[in-house]
Design a protein around this nucleic acid. Structure first.
Lengths: 116, 116
DNA sequence: CTGCTCGTACGATATTCCTCGTAGTACGGT
DNA sequence: ACCGTACTACGAGGAATATCGTACGAGCAG
């Protein structure tokens, strides 16, 4: 009864508070990089459950939290689901070209190593 | 007597074996990012001792090893010193634009946060 | 040969991180 | 009210990492 129901909010770092080391660390994990790549090709916000990851739900929650706290993604509630989207504009403003080069490098590497 | 003295070599990953996750992880550490930035502005190969890092020599050795094994730098012996240089060409060939955007983002962040 | 400098190797420690299982909350449908 | 789905919180285990100190090796200057 403090404020309103369905008003659950999640802490996100401000654009100006984004740290390069945290973003690089977030992107350095294979599972998280995979999530980011899927979000990049999707024009819609995706719920966590739409990802087919080789880890349990607990671990999935952990990885999404790392991505959110580092500022790579933004998460909002939609009913019982929590949908995620890339913070493209914020990232581009603070670290111009970084996300695109990572995404491009990841795609290149997948082609090179054979969809591993 | 196997080959020659002063022929100590160090293992470096081939260009085609570079892994994006390993490179991102290597760059995600503040100390290592600092080393990479210094190497980037220097046109000469720098010995480990030319860096003024807030860690001991043992730890410095560790960080340089991580950078070398991830393929970010190349290390060669010169007398008693071991000099390092960025593998710019290799990185650009495999992960185009990545190093530059990281370096640019790091410089930007330093300006933004006040030379932290 | 004797130091001196540069860097390494090894062991130890503390911390972080990835992973999981279980239990629990929030929301929507019946 | 009841159940199912989506996600979380907590605790725990195990691996990786960052850090250090000490002891050591390789080369250079006397």
């Amino acid at each position: 009864m403090t404020t309103a129901p369905t008003a659950r909010t999640l802490p996100h770092p401000e654009r100006e508070a984004l740290r390069l080391e945290a973003v690089l660390h977030a992107l350095a994990d294979p599972v998280r990089l995979r999530v980011v790549r899927e979000l990049a090709v999707s024009e819609e916000k995706l719920p966590c459950s739409s990802f087919d990851l080789p880890v349990t739900k607990s671990t999935t929650t952990h990885h999404f939290r790392v991505l959110r706290e580092s500022g790579v993604i933004r998460q909002t509630y939609r009913g019982t689901a929590k949908v995620s989207e890339l913070r493209r504009t914020d990232l581009e403003a603070v670290f111009p070209g970084l996300l695109d080069s990572v995404l491009h490098s990841a795609a290149r590497q997948e082609r090179r190593l054979g969809s591993g």
